[in-house]
Design a protein around this nucleic acid. Structure first.
Lengths: 222, 222
DNA sequence: TTGATAACCGTATCAGCGTACGGTAAAAAC
DNA sequence: GTTTTTACCGTACGCTGATACGGTTATCAA
């Protein structure tokens, strides 16, 4: 066998370049040539790993979606392992989706750009829908689990609750992004005020679902 | 003075063509040539009314944003004139934003496409932010008015409430769009089930803000 | 009637895009 | 070393897009 290279590593490298370009200059600025330059390779090599530009974009979107998903699921898994109150874990997961620092803002820009293009690109739309479905499913599961330990009213239907919680999260993310873009930001004080503000909204929303105390498990020590 | 033409009518005609193209084939499919064809005129005439393509898109976005805004504000105005319970009026306004029928779906596609492009087009972003601000302001006002007639707890801060209500609306719109796109839809039964489902979520959300009965005004006769 | 001005058209121009393709270098197998 | 397969490069090609521009027609003022 001839000369070898780490296929996945290369593809990730390209996907990262795509994301950086989108975040910095928008999806329209993503060309194969620019992507290659940003990834520090030639146009031909990009073609070697992705037959078409659409393949490249799809892989980039799949990658970021997976990253976001994993972060959320990891949060949940760790929370349940440590037997922490579900409402607390959910608060963290929801906050994870808000573009409050520059890193999440970048990620949000990428996600939104792809969401826009997904309107007439079924493959992208499917990825988008799938991640949304999984998130909603996870939240619904969390609410359901909340019943068993007494945080949630046993008569509450988990599905509408999950829909509500994911909806406020997404909607809040949009508002945070729009407001943060225009003016305040810059220093950090404005951002933190916004964070506190959001936290209170999320808290209010969670309080309408997680109405009881966690009676079965004690909070983790640290 | 020479040959005259209705300037605003022409510009609206072009904006409509842009929106139709976006809704049918996405923002990337919008070219000056195609827009001209869709509007039934020549490329040169489009240029006569818009110096650049960006001007054209900006005007189109401004137009649709204004339309959406006016519809919402009209709803509110009419509701307050008829002395209807504020919670009912808000429910209608929020439902107005959900892409439940094909008309709103088309509008939603246009709005989302522009939102995506707004990420690196400050002029578009400003329009987007402005409409969001105004909507939130109107909702906050409605909540505030709710205090005077007894529908809202006097101690409730209208601003976080408005943020919550607009956030769920936006988030719900996204979910409705994504789910409706993939499978069910088609007939209308699925869509109506989704509508009922959404209504219950909105109702739950409104119930957590409008906790009292409207004691000052009677409901309108018809 | 006759300019003058604005509405309107069609096309040329030029840049930037995605992709095809021929070529080179390197590493594994023998 | 030779061969073979793959990683990788640079460029040429075809196409499409936005914009520039010169020309034509219709209307109003004089």
């Amino acid at each position: 066998m001839p000369r070898t290279a780490d296929h996945d590593q290369r593809r990730r490298q390209i996907a990262d370049a795509v994301c950086a370009l989108i975040s910095d200059h928008g999806l329209d600025a993503v060309t194969v040539a620019r992507t290659a330059a940003a990834a520090g390779m030639s146009v031909g090599l990009v073609q070697h790993y992705f037959r078409t530009k659409d393949d490249m974009l799809l892989h980039a979107f799949t990658t970021v979606s997976a990253r976001i998903r994993d972060r959320a699921e990891g949060h949940i898994r760790q929370g349940t392992e440590h037997r922490r109150p579900i409402a607390r874990v959910m608060a963290e997961v929801m906050a994870e989706f808000l573009p409050l620092d520059e890193e999440r803002r970048a990620e949000y820009r990428v996600a939104l750009a792809f969401a826009g293009r997904a309107l007439d690109a079924p493959a992208l739309a499917e990825v988008d829908a799938e991640t949304a479905r999984r998130l909603r499913r996870d939240v619904a599961r969390a609410v359901h689990n909340g019943k068993e330990c007494g945080e949630v009213d046993p008569d509450l239907d988990p599905w509408p609750a999950a829909v509500r919680l994911t909806a406020v999260t997404e909607g809040l993310a949009m508002q945070v992004y729009r407001d943060g873009a225009g003016g305040a930001e810059g220093g950090g004080a404005g951002g933190e005020a916004a964070a506190a503000h959001c936290a209170s909204v999320i808290e209010a929303e969670l309080a309408s679902v997680f109405t009881g105390e966690c009676r079965q498990y004690a909070d983790a020590p640290s």
